[in-house]
Design a protein around this nucleic acid. Sequence first.
DNA 1: GACTGGTCAGAACTC
DNA 2: CTGACCAGTC
Length: 829
Amino acid sequence: MTDASTPLIVGSSSGDSAAGSPRPDADLLEGLNPQQREAVEYRGPALLIVAGAGSGKTSVLTRRIASLLRTREAWPSQILAITFTNKAAAEMRERVGALIGDTARGMWISTFHSACVRILRREAENFGFKTSFTIYDSGDSRALVKRLVKEHEADRYGLTPAAVQGKISKLKNELADAESYARTANMSDPAERVFVEVFADYQRALTRANAFDFDDLIAQTVYLFRAFPKVADVYRRRFRHVLVDEYQDTNHAQYALIHELTRPPGEGDEPAPYDGGGGMMIFEPAPQPAGAAEAGASLTVVGDSDQSIYAFRGADIRNISEFERDFPGAKVVLLEQNYRSTQNILSAANAVISNNFDRKEKKLWTDVGAGDPIVGFTGYSQHDEAQFVADEIEALHRGGLAYGDVAVFYRTNSQSRALEEIFIRSALPYKIMGGTKFYERAEIKDAMAYLIAVANPTDEMAVRRILNKPRRGIGDVTETAIARYAAEQGISFRDALANASALGVGPKIQAAITQLDAVLAEATALMLPPSGEIAPSTSVADGLALLLNKSGYMDALRASRDPQDEARLENLDELVSVTKEFARNNPDGTVIDFLTEVALVSDADDLEDASGSVSLMTMHTAKGLEYDAVFVTGVEEDLIPHRISANEPGGPAEERRLFYVGITRARKKLHLSLAMTRAQFGEVTVAMPSRFLQEIPAELIDWRQSPGDVNSRGGGSRALNARRPGARGGSSNWGARSLPEGGSASRRFGDDLVPKSSSIDRFPNRIPAKVRDNGDLELAPGDRIRHDDFGEGRVDAVTGEGAKRIAHVRFDAAGQKKLLIKVAPIVKL
DNA sequence: GACTGGTCAGAACTC
DNA sequence: CTGACCAGTC
């Protein structure tokens, strides 16, 4: 929309541009409503943009940055913009670039974690770390915690690794350490004492390994700024404009970091309260000379307390709700006009969220009109529900809606199984977003551990991990022997490998250790050549290939007869491609840079392009996205709101916000569905409609099948046996009856209650592809078939090839369906 | 004695 | 779908 080539106005002092002749940023204000315009134009020390869902906040934020640059109020290097995901950062960078062109370079647009890593790498030497530090993800820290819990026998006091890890993380987000925690905790409780020991040991282990865990990245940066005001001043002088997106999801450590960064520089280590009165406008791009009275950076935060859904990992909603108190004199701009959804969807969203007390009143509105009513559906089982979703998507698709414009949300990942199963059978293209955790796969973690062992040899966890991968005959005993030797000699675990003969282990094992040491040394020479030389950009890819081949890792997988290992080989190939891609994008990238990049990708980032497919994801993942048609599934008590949150203070309110986030993702069509029974963890439970459903005015929902319809059929548990209208034939199977596994007969419960035993439902979630294979079934238009679920029907057409052949069937009772012939429970008549 | 590999049980909320 | 356990082998 904006001409990217618009030249910068050079030479004019931007100070008068605000008053005089046409503003250089006039085009940036085009098409904005008055509130948005104010959010772009306002200049002052602190600005809070309360941006309701779909109110155009990204647009406002990017234009605000573009405006600062265009009017020359700031150089790109003086801008720090913080987003929640790398993906959001990339998008913002791109959009700012589109507005003002190449000048966008030099800005810091990144996540909290990336920004902190950058700062920590620059300053590491100043406070006892090496620049080559590595980053522990939650899996790594869990492994470390686990070992320490075992060592301290902490389980005797009821401390599980998960609980310890969670508590440490929470404390770090509060900027507490073991010592400060010990001062406040009840140390007469032995469990607390042991916890403090584990915490302290954990931190020592990280320091020894020259590593930070995720929470440390933020917390240590705050410590750094507080302990070294001179260092902090460098960044305070540099960043004159700090902008933070999704401010409602910041935790205390992030809040503290923002405070440190926006404090006026040069006041020494006197921790003065934020001076909101220093509201001079910064017209001079050049940094002022040190010593002059300087204001803190201008701070802009954007957020919506109604979309705060990360309290469980430390987000503190008070950061946004008390912004005006924290930053006296702050300007607040409220964006309420919604450009995404129809009024019906917004009315439902408003109605739901208004049940949260102690929130600031805010009503989303739109001028696009009421739109279609919200569609409701109650299935007898989660499969029934999934079938509804699949049918409805097919109907929308036939109506001209692309699959890529449809999304299906659920509360927990486990709910995706039933949907997937039905989607596969319905030949509906879908993609699970955020579920594939490539970098969490064992083989990828192994490969990364090899790289870490080279890049940061002090990282003992990594070296221990690869010690016996592939199998080298090095077990617990040998590992302990190495650790003991390292401790005795005062050398690192990694260096102990070079002295295998001194360990007092057998000759075979000695040889294995020496071989590993040699491979690591060779890779080190390749990737980290002695100072003076610069490693070629391909060194990471080459080094990885060398490590995997010469260590025997690849050979072991190739020799394996486990079919899983074939997939593992493919994944490793994929990782090698990733390193090559990395080399292309970062010609000067080192192995440390690569490791950092990988460590900081979050699940929300690898939402690859899902064009042509329906997107399946959790409601958390859905934040920030939007789709023409949205299906919110499993709208049941104990799911949304989730059972576990029910007893936590603020839990139900947070669940309501999560539901609110889910429904506000929809542009045109919103579907809410639930199931009367749900098989989870091998047990079938009766589900109740979510309380949130009742909060939506009845006239907004068009129930295709309401909870009342389902219950009225025989009432109570007899609903289990009720038939879905249109599905005829068969006698006593229900809901998941269509599952083709052999034991389906045993799944008939008659008029009885829910089965107590779990064995019956052992397989309900399995993808049926393995169970049924109709691969050789030949179908032609005109053939009559019978389907376990839908009864008899006539084949209209057959499309696709081989395993992907799809039958388009018109069922006598159930209507039009598409079926993947290979797996559909059908017989030719 | 140390290590491997098979088998069985238990498991999960959200990043 | 991972961890713990046990029997077998080097």
